[in-house]
Design a protein around this nucleic acid. Structure first.
Lengths: 119, 119, 119, 119
DNA sequence: GTGGTCTAGACCACC
DNA sequence: GTGGTCTAGACCACA
């Protein structure tokens, strides 16, 4: 896997994990790769994977059983969607709106463009 | 200059030229580097620069006098903005709208988010 | 097909394509010959045909689906007429007006000649 | 000299002769090349040159002295201009007007285009 | 010298 | 298979 420099690697791996869950590759309730194993697969430091798993656990997408490992939470897909939605609203949209301002596109123009796109 | 592979080189150079004009480095009416000269500077084939210049001429950003060279058009900055606006509407917005659909964000939700961003 | 040297080959082929569309040989919405196929038929380099097709697409006479081919646009005949009209105004008329100047024919004389021609 | 097939060769040579007179290469009153000499130079049959000279004599551009040769008439340039003017009005303009009709350009549009061209 | 066109051949992404 | 881009090298008209 290639990493780009515009985002922390642990977040890029978090997206990778999330996408696998969404795709159904890793069913809910199932144990996922251990920190050391995943670190080896992804060719990064185990600490980085730990941050990824902790991050996903905080979001309720994973949960862990001490001494055993990390597991896919029951409603993981739903949580992932919410996570992506939040990220989209907090990171992507502001950039889009800023560029609109720069190019002189008013919000009112958006609706027209949006409806054209649906045709 | 580095080129990324996700966009044609001639378009990347076109953006480079446009940015220089917007920045005021190349005043309107002024002759810009000849095709061969620019090709040497940018380390690409003259045909590629020819394509860049023709592209910008079609957009009204440059004009040329045969046997003399290419020049920055009078209202180049205005045309560049229009070009960027068109590109944003035709390339960026569709992707944004598609992702909105995927994440279950309705167009009506946008207005609220937009107004929050202005505070 | 014979090519004359006073005009770029890709433009002569563009006219050929336009005439076929106007004549109804290539109905709107229909796929036309692929770049390589046409190149073989016309005995020119594929790049030259690519230029022809791109030129006609820029003018809205053709459109293309990536990986599939080029197609005749819905309102192609209308666009072709506009294209020919523009060419006539930008290329033919200036030459006519220049020759008028050379021969000492004033614009006012034209009207009389024009009306005689209608009889 | 190259001949194109869209016009009789004797007329093409007539234009050639006329242009030389207008350019001042062949001063008025001067004897021009004999029929045989010109035929050799132009690589055509003497009969063709004879038609050319007769045509120009009819128009008052040349005159001949029997047994001596053909000479440039006193007011040849003026006659040539009139000849070209007549040809322009009777041959060129009708074609232009016909094409205008075909392209949907009204005579009223001409004035605007004409004045733009003068800028 | 300038732009403009054309060829031959290559490689890529997408379908 | 399709279009799309790029290179290398050539030749042309025009100024």
């Amino acid at each position: 896997m290639e990493y780009h420099k515009h985002q922390a690697i642990y977040l890029q791996i978090a997206e990778f994990v999330a996408n696998n869950i969404l795709a159904g590759n890793w069913p809910k309730g199932e144990k996922i790769a251990s920190v050391r194993e995943m670190a080896s697969t992804m060719q990064v430091n185990p600490n980085t994977i730990m941050r990824t798993y902790t991050h996903l656990s905080d979001a309720g997408i994973l949960f862990n059983k001490r001494g055993i490992g990390f597991f896919v939470a029951e409603d993981a897909p739903k949580k992932i969607l919410k996570m992506q939605k939040d990220k989209f609203i907090q990171e992507t949209l502001p950039v889009v709106f800023e560029k609109m301002e720069l190019l002189g596109i008013r919000f009112e123009d958006l609706k027209e463009i949006y409806q054209k796109g649906l045709k």
